[in-house]
Design a protein around this nucleic acid. Structure first.
Length: 390
DNA sequence: AACACGGGGGA
DNA sequence: TCCCCAGTGTT
């Protein structure tokens, strides 16, 4: 095989070792064939998804934000609920952040919800409630990066804008034979160049979605179904037998483990929940107060400092394990009951901003999945189940 | 360039 | 258990 310059797509490719089997001739003609084949395939194979039934930029935007690092099947019910509660950007702008977070509860990456709320207010105030269709203007809104700007501009506004997400990176790295690390700056540059070169003037949104759909359903991370691929005849990876070797992705480091102890204090059906400061982990969400420690004594200290007279009643109710992208959490759950009369104002230090006695099943505020697990472990029914076992 | 930031589904 | 998903923003 001929030597290629770094960062340059080497075409035509030959299968090696051995004689050439397939030759791919790069150029506008091949690009055009890829566009045509992919578009036709998409028309027949596209899944019926809620956000494909609308042209409303607000709904498209909502779907794109929810879909950041999140699977389609996970997003669908959240998208329906959110849109039905906030049908327009104006209604989202007027909402309380706690209610927005409540609707996001369980979806993860909660900053997305906080920032969408901000962006909704910005659109309502500065764009008179109408979304900008220009990629650059979209990019200027908080929470909208290169991908989301390209997606909204091309899908909702028919702008000829490229987009590269995880699916597209995989598809293009194979189709073009890009063997730079797709997460590196160099790899990303090549991918965006390829995407920009390919995206057509006519129906750019359809092409971009076709690329993503192909990555999600055919050009999968493992065991790609090349037999079902509409562009396998144009694929460099296929032609060189490297379908399983691309994309190249640098290995990631291991995640540290953190031990926490949480205090779940019940007063009737209500639990003492604390709201985390906005900005950091689980920002703006409510949870039973917890501290990084292994010992229930630390939870006693936490409650004592907060002015809650439940320290003596606190006992271990179980353990919860929760995996995040960058952290593995092991939480010891301590539980106590106080009479309703003892329900009092609690004052908690950072990372908490305030505390309140709330019904955890009422879902009027945002609660993380970790917090749900903790409350569930320390719920009265769980306690009954525990007693019944003895 | 590295890191923070959730949660879940599939192999 | 590991991978990685319709990524963005900060350091």
């Amino acid at each position: 095989m001929r030597k290629k310059a770094k960062g340059q797509v080497a075409l035509p490719f030959e299968r090696e070792p051995g004689p050439p089997v397939v030759t791919i001739e790069p150029g506008p003609e091949r690009d055009h064939e890829v566009v045509i084949a992919l578009g036709a395939w998409f028309d027949g194979a596209a899944r019926d998804l809620p956000w494909r039934r609308t042209r409303d930029p607000y709904a498209i935007w909502l779907s794109e934000v929810m879909l950041q690092q999140t699977r389609v099947e996970t997003v669908i019910p959240y998208f329906e609920r959110f849109l039905s509660r906030f049908p327009t950007v104006r209604e989202l702008a007027l909402a309380e952040l706690d209610e927005v977070l409540a609707l996001w509860s369980g979806l993860g990456y909660y900053r997305r919800a906080r920032v969408m709320h901000l962006a909704a207010r910005e659109v309502t105030e500065h764009h008179a409630g109408a979304f900008p269709g220009d990629a650059a203007a979209l990019r200027a809104l908080p929470g909208i990066g290169a991908y989301t700007a390209g997606a909204v501009a091309s899908i909702a506004f028919d702008r000829r804008e490229p987009l590269v997400d995880g699916n597209v990176a995989r598809v293009l790295s194979r189709l073009e034979g890009i063997d730079d690390d797709i997460r590196s700056a160099a790899g990303q540059k090549l991918l965006w160049q390829a995407a920009a070169r390919l995206v057509p003037e006519a129906r750019p949104g359809r092409f971009n979605q076709a690329l993503m759909e192909l990555g999600a359903t055919v050009c999968t991370p493992r065991a790609p179904r090349c037999g079902a691929c509409p562009v396998s005849g144009h694929c460099v990876a296929r032609a060189t037998g490297r379908e399983e070797e691309l994309p190249v992705i640098a290995p990631k480091r291991e995640v540290p483990s953190v031990r926490m102890v949480a205090a779940v204090v019940w007063a009737g059906s209500r639990v003492l929940l604390a709201r985390r400061e906005e900005g950091g982990l689980f920002g703006g969400l409510w949870e039973p107060p917890m501290v990084p420690s292994d010992s229930i004594d630390e939870a006693r200290t936490l409650l004592a400092d907060a002015g809650i007279p439940a320290t003596l009643a606190l006992h271990e109710a179980g353990r919860v394990r929760h995996i995040l992208t960058h952290r593995r959490m092991e939480v010891t759950v301590a539980r106590a009951e106080v009479s309703e009369a003892w329900r009092c104002r609690a004052k908690l230090a950072s990372p908490y901003e305030k505390a309140s006695w709330l019904d955890p099943s009422a879902s009027e505020v945002g609660v993380s999945t970790l917090a749900r697990k903790i409350v569930s472990t320390a719920s009265p029914s769980a306690a009954w189940a525990e007693r019944a076992r003895r």
